[in-house]
């Protein structure tokens, strides 16, 4: 628990929240403190990159959230870092210099949510073709389903 308290002392702007199942801590980090906080967490022992993803909370402000999961092998602990990203200017600092593993994940979040990671070495679309329009995992992007018609089958006529 000493890791968390040292982080909490250094960053008074960060709100910590305890999750019981599974036991781990969640840190709500302001976007301005994000890279410094991640760097501090890395020095404090959370040196394993686990996951990064975007979430679109359509009606909430800030609308987007980037969720980063870090892992500490030595303490067997997890830290989830949540950063809000406003819809008007969806920009966040990239952490690829701290965790190169974030590279693909940030590209994915850019591709699917349109969150721009500043300082990313190669921020291009990753899972969709380059000339794709829009960011499909945003809530205002349609599922894109094609209506299924069964009437044309010979049996049904």
């Amino acid at each position: 628990m000493s890791i968390y308290s040292s982080l909490a002392d250094a960053f008074p702007s960060v709100e910590f929240e305890k999750v019981l199942d599974p036991p781990q801590d969640v840190a709500h980090v302001p976007a301005a403190d994000y890279p410094e906080f991640v760097a501090a967490a890395k020095t404090a022992g959370f040196d394993v990159f686990a996951d990064l993803c975007g979430v679109d909370y359509l009606r909430r402000d800030p609308r987007f959230e980037v969720v980063l999961n870090l892992l500490s092998y030595s303490e067997s602990a997890r830290l989830r870092i949540r950063v809000g990203v406003p819809a008007a200017d969806p920009k966040l600092a990239s952490i690829t210099d701290l965790f190169p593993g974030a590279n693909f994940y940030e590209r994915e979040a850019f591709d699917l949510f349109g969150v721009v990671f500043e300082g990313h070495p190669d921020l291009t679309r990753i899972v969709l073709p380059d000339d794709w329009e829009g960011h499909p995992l945003r809530k205002d992007y349609a599922v894109g389903s094609v209506p299924v018609r069964f009437k044309e089958s010979p049996k049904a006529q």
């Binding site: 499909p136 992007y141 349609a142 599922v143 894109g144 389903s145 094609v146 299924v148």
Partner: peptide, 10 residues
């Protein structure tokens, strides 16, 4: 054959 259960953008 039909897109299966994934009737979506991708």
């Amino acid at each position: 054959s039909t897109g299966g259960m994934f009737n979506n953008y991708a």
